[in-house]
Simulated scan of single mutants.
Amino acid sequence: MFTTSWTASPQAPSEGFTPNWSREGFWRQSVRQVVRLSAGGGRVRVRLSNAYGTSPVRVAGASVGHTAVGAGVRPGSLTPLTFGGGAQIGIPARGEVVSDDVPLAVAAGESVTVTLHFGAPTGPATFHAQAFTAGYRGEGDLTARADGAGFDAGTESWYFLSAVETDAGRTDGVALFGDSVTDGFGSTVGADRRWSDALAARTGRPVLNAGIGGNLLLNDSAWYGEKGLHRLRRDVLGHLGLDTLVVLLGLNDIGFSETDEQPTYKPAPVVEAAELVAGHRELIRQGRAAGLRVIGATLLPFAGSDHWGEHAAKAAHELNEWIRSAGEYDAVADLNRALADPADPDRLRPSYDFGDHLHPNDLGYEVMAEVVSATL
């Protein structure tokens, strides 16, 4: 029985937060991508998403192996991937494909490297903007190059790759559903220090990161993905081996109206706490309908950030109090109180602050994982 071991939520091609290749796509090139698994096994397979493509994308070849240094793959582990027994596959417009499973012994916490070769133009690429880890591009078919030679361009995004599954047979997986805090903004790039990584290490359970930087609960965005109400089914409920959903979402809905810095919201709608409560209730309904235990996480303190303002503060306090006291979630992870500055509970504790008063650093993410681990 297969279990989803790693995920990245698909996004439409966009400028994103850092330079990326999503709008130009790929042609006669190979893309090598590194992902950290949260469940081991003896066989692996991958999911490729063309969720935002308007025409099919042809994958001319693919491989997987144990990650070595940089773009390298550990000698002897590089394994060709097939699709229905063949080396090539077309990913339908707005669809996805799953590879055949191949023998590759992997451990929880280990990284694997997936290489995709595109012989024909892909057009704009469905991708995940913020990977917080290095990926690589090279000219020609490099799927069989274990040494990483030829990969001469770098990226911090994932392209077409949306999941890796193993035959772990686990049914106790946890999905974290949120925005940039869940995605891992503020964690050390390349070090796998997101709170999803920390939670997997603490619990030994499969943990899926379904965060998108800038994501909103109630509204779609050109850069920040489809609204949480619409994407939950695809980005969480469609994955294998889950029994718990943790929701941490809504801060951007109230915070974007306080800042002029958001490129896709000018002006941003002013959202009330009651609207967020209704959105959370819908996520609870969807999660429970899929048989999941649903845990609500309170919004982190954010005074001093560009999201802070009189209205955002009021809405955040009201939403957090509802999460804590309404009894509608199956359990509550009070991240707000755990990360608050004792001298000013509206602010992140300085030792947990990445520096923008909005996102935690590595230590702050460890604390988040500790709180949710205790809740689990």
Rank of each mutant, 00 (worst) to 15 (best):
A71Q: 07
G211C: 12
L237W: 06
A273L: 08
E96I: 02
G184N: 13
G214K: 11
L218S: 08
R349T: 08
T171N: 14
E370T: 15
V164Y: 10
S9P: 05
V189Y: 14
I91D: 08
T67D: 05
G238M: 07
L348M: 09
D243H: 11
T82I: 11
A312P: 09
A338M: 02
E366S: 13
F160S: 06
H311C: 07
L283D: 05
P56F: 04
P360F: 11
G190L: 03
A338C: 00
E328T: 03
Q286H: 14
Y365W: 08
M1K: 09
L78K: 05
G25N: 09
R32Q: 10
F354W: 15
A8K: 12
R74W: 11
A149V: 13
R349L: 12
R43M: 07
D353F: 15
D330I: 09
L237S: 10
G173A: 14
W158Y: 13
L358T: 03
S30G: 06
A316S: 15
A51C: 00
S351E: 15
S162P: 05
S221L: 00
V35Q: 01
T171V: 15
S111F: 01
H117D: 04
D183Y: 04
L161D: 12
T188S: 15
A191F: 05
N320T: 07
N50V: 05
E272D: 15
V371W: 07
D243L: 06
L218G: 08
T3I: 04
F256H: 11
F127T: 12
T82C: 12
A12M: 04
A134K: 10
A129S: 14
E24M: 05
Q130H: 09
R233D: 15
E226Y: 02
S221I: 02
T113D: 01
V106T: 13
F127E: 13
G85Q: 03
S111Y: 00
L292D: 05
V174W: 09
R58Y: 08
H359S: 04
A374M: 03
D341S: 02
E156R: 14
R293F: 02
G150H: 08
L245K: 03
A278H: 12
